Measured scan of single mutants.
Amino acid sequence: KKKIKIYIENENGEKKTIEIEVEGDIDEIAKELAKKYNVKIVKIEP
């Protein structure tokens, strides 16, 4: 498992940072999160 930080922006332009532990393809997981929460991924840090 890797701990990563995902910087997101919602439709109101509010920026947030999510810190999660992931296993597998980080890009795939980030895309799923973006779709699920309707946010834009700004940056992903390993």
Results as ranks from 00 to 15, higher is better:
K35R: 12
N10T: 15
I6W: 01
K36I: 08
K15F: 14
I6C: 01
I4K: 01
I29R: 04
V39Q: 04
K15N: 09
I44Q: 01
L33R: 00
D25V: 04
P46H: 14
K2M: 13
I44R: 01
E21A: 06
N38W: 04
K3M: 12
K36E: 08
A34Q: 06
I44E: 02
K15G: 10
I20Q: 01
K35Q: 08
I6V: 09
V22C: 10
N38S: 05
K5Q: 06
E9L: 07
I4A: 06
P46C: 14
E28R: 10
K40E: 08
D25C: 07
K35T: 06
K1I: 12
T17H: 08
I4R: 02
T17A: 06
E21R: 06
K40M: 11
E19N: 05
G24R: 03
V42A: 03
K2L: 13
A34D: 03
K5M: 09
Y37T: 14
V39M: 08
E28H: 08
I29V: 10
A34P: 00
K16T: 12
G13E: 02
V42Q: 03
K5L: 13
N38G: 14
E9W: 04
K5W: 09
D27F: 12
N38R: 09
Y7R: 04
E21F: 13
I44C: 06
K3N: 06
P46I: 15
G13T: 01
E32K: 09
V39T: 05
Y37G: 14
D27H: 11
K40A: 08
E32Q: 10
L33N: 00
V22D: 06
E23A: 08
Y37R: 07
K40F: 05
T17G: 03
K31N: 11
K35L: 08
K40V: 14
I18W: 15
N12K: 13
V22S: 07
K43A: 11
D27E: 11
K1F: 08
I44N: 01
E28Q: 12
K15V: 15
I26W: 13
P46N: 10
V42M: 03
I44W: 12
G24F: 03
N10L: 15
V22Y: 13
Y37V: 13
V42R: 02
I26N: 02
A30R: 05
E9D: 02
A30I: 15
I20Y: 05
K2N: 09
E32Y: 09
E32S: 10
E23N: 08
I41S: 02
V39W: 15
I18S: 00
I4D: 00
D27R: 11
K16W: 15
E21Y: 14
I6P: 00
V22E: 05
P46F: 15
Y7C: 07
K36F: 07
P46D: 12
I44H: 02
K35H: 05
V39K: 02
K36H: 08
V22M: 11
A34K: 09
K5D: 01
K31F: 05
K16I: 11
D27N: 11
K43H: 11
K35N: 07
V42K: 02
N10M: 15
E14V: 11
T17W: 14
V39I: 10
K36P: 00
N12Y: 14
K16C: 15
K3C: 12
V22L: 08
